[in-house]
Design a protein around this nucleic acid. Structure first.
Lengths: 255, 255
DNA sequence: CGTGCAGTTGAATTGCTTCAAAGCCTGTGG
DNA sequence: CCACAGGCTTTGAAGCAATTCAACTGCACG
């Protein structure tokens, strides 16, 4: 069932047919969760990993006075929780942004699959490292960019990630975020997000209405954002980096 | 040799005597690197992991126009690079902030140690998850806190981490950072870092001169920062990790 | 005893926030 | 089918936090 996840892990580490079969059988407890519900509460001790099958969720942190920071978005194919060490206490919460279909992988099942296949182990490592790389990029994003750059960067990242799982249209994507969500993501007030979006629209860099984000000229937006996508797609590079540099066919990698 | 690392991994996963012995034998290429040198350049393909034995380093990202963001500090016992998947391309650079003594663990050695001991594997997972948790906290720190809170939070984190490896004095630590470094860490200009430090000093929350940071009342600083140390000491879920001491009398520090 | 870098200060400016109100969609019930 | 409610978005105006530029001080080191 978790097509996106398996495809992603395959891209990371080149799974065998057996590996994929095994992963298929890991999941259980597939369920729909309504929008705006918590999947994980801060401080919980997890004994399983969630897999997002459909919909969007976000990881966030809150401080006493109510201020909230979104620290990650989860889209189909993403893990929800902290594989694969159990029990593991999380220090953030996860909330759905849309209705979400989510599956669970029990601790023991995941660990035994990793025991049996080094490729699966490697794939989960790479997935974690990829999330880490995104987190680093987010720290840099809020730390050193201007409002306009931050939002542009966020949009570049989202579209690139959605494209990797086939959830984009030709030149955009569905974006189930309110301006408040965006503000809590990039560290700006809602009002200023609104004004900055208008700037981006006025500059012809994006159009955004009714949750439809359109980026007519991705290269232009990427330039504004100083967006460098390598942090998102290292998976493949690493596989290819194994042999010494040589001329190689450009596109398809055999499964 | 890498005492701090082994002690930390032991705290994470409870290593056997054999495990520790094995880890001892992993390292090679111990070397001193002068201050202000790069240990890793962005885009490099790593085939080994570094271990910081002495001194401080930082991970940073840069964009074309020269703006720089520090995304992590490395202190003794920390890994430098991305274990344990090789070769692995990093999308950040690492620079020394002081003279640093660093050892290397070759890819094959690390992987075979992890093969032999599930506790070692688990420990490296937990170490990575711990760094990830810090990164998340940093994103939240620059995203939702004020200047004063950000710097206070940074100091709380640094002292707590240093305490875990025994590198603090009774009520402070050595802090080899310039105000520019601090600014690049928390997303503020150098000038404003300066003024904010003065505020913190005036409030009696810290004293900082000649690279000596003193926190007379940790609980007070922690309150200002909204600092919650759980993200740093989840290692042992068994809750036996001692919480960072709050305000403690004890001024046995030679001036 | 200068030279250079880190820290400090002041003044002007800007980017962003805050507060408050109004407009606009979408879903709901009469 | 229309009226209304509630969330999200938009607008304006005022204020504040942080930046920028530029000069100056103090300290460490050769």
């Amino acid at each position: 069932m978790p097509h996106h996840l398996i495809r992603k892990l395959d891209r990371y580490a080149g799974l065998s047919a057996d590996d994929k079969e095994m992963l298929q059988r890991l999941v259980c407890d597939v369920a729909w969760v309504a929008s705006d519900h918590d999947l994980i509460d801060e401080g919980a001790a997890l004994r399983q990993v969630g897999v997002i099958l459909d919909g969007w969720a976000c990881c966030y942190k809150q401080i006493e006075d109510g201020r909230r920071q979104i620290v990650a978005y989860l889209i189909p194919g993403d893990l929800c929780g902290t594989p694969p060490v159990f029990p593991s206490i999380v220090n953030y919460s996860v909330a759905t942004l849309t209705p979400v279909r989510v599956a669970q992988i029990p601790a023991h099942a995941l660990l035994s699959a990793m025991d049996k296949s080094p490729r699966i182990t490697r794939a989960f490592w790479l997935d974690l490292l990829a999330s880490f790389a995104i987190q680093r990029e987010w720290t840099a994003n809020v730390g050193l960019r201007t409002a306009r750059e931050r939002i542009a960067h966020l949009f570049c990242e989202i579209v690139t990630r959605l494209r990797a799982v086939g959830l984009t249209t030709a030149d955009g994507c569905n974006l189930p975020l309110t301006q408040e969500d965006i503000g809590e993501t990039v560290g700006l007030s809602t009002v200023h997000v609104n004004r900055t979006l208008q700037e981006l629209r006025a500059a012809g860099l994006i159009s955004l209405k009714r949750q439809q984000l359109v980026i007519p000229d991705f290269a232009a937006l990427r330039a504004v954002a100083h967006f460098d996508s390598t942090y998102l797609c290292r998976s493949r590079l690493e596989a290819d980096a194994d042999p010494p540099p040589a001329a190689m066919a450009g596109s398809a990698v055999p499964a």
